[in-house]
C-alpha cells in the first residue's frame, strides 16, 4: 500500500468519491461470506483462513476492522446452521458398456 500524494494526472492513480459505508456494512459482508462458504461445506478453519489471509482483501478487511473474535463469532453463527451437516455429492453412473456403475462419493467436509 502506498501513501504518496495522489497525482490526478496519473491514469493509474485511483480517485473516487465518498460512498456510504460503515461497520454494519462490513459486518454484513463478513456474514455473507460466512453463510456462503458454510453452505458450500468449508470447515471452520478454512473459512477463518479466508478472512485471515491478506490476499482476499474483502474478507481480510472485515477481519482487520472487526477483529478475530468477532469474525469467529460470525463464522460460528453460520456454521451452527449450515455446518452441522456433511454435503455429499455422488456422481451419476458413467455410461460405459459392460461396466458396473460405481458411484463416486465425495465427502466435501470433514469434522
Amino acid at each position: 500500500m502506498s501513501y504518496h500524494d495522489p497525482e490526478p494526472e496519473d491514469p493509474q492513480e485511483l480517485v473516487g468519491v465518498e460512498l456510504p459505508g460503515d461497520e454494519a456494512v462490513t459486518r454484513e459482508m463478513a456474514a455473507t461470506f460466512a453463510d456462503e462458504f458454510a453452505q458450500l461445506g468449508l470447515t471452520r478453519i478454512q473459512i477463518l483462513s479466508l478472512y485471515r489471509r491478506a490476499e482476499y482483501t474483502g474478507a481480510h478487511q472485515a477481519w482487520r476492522l472487526l477483529g478475530e473474535d468477532e469474525i469467529a463469532r460470525i463464522v460460528d453463527e453460520s456454521l451452527a446452521v449450515y455446518g452441522r451437516f456433511v454435503w455429499v455429492v455422488t456422481d451419476g453412473p458413467e455410461e460405459v458398456a459392460g461396466s458396473v456403475a460405481q458411484p463416486l462419493r465425495l465427502v466435501r467436509r470433514g469434522s
Binding site: F85, V86, W87, V88, V89, T90, D91, S111
Partner: peptide, 9 residues
C-alpha cells in the same frame, strides 16, 4: 450427479 446432506458427520 446428486447432492444431499448427511448426518452424523
Amino acid at each position: 450427479f446428486r447432492t444431499t446432506v448427511e448426518e452424523p458427520v
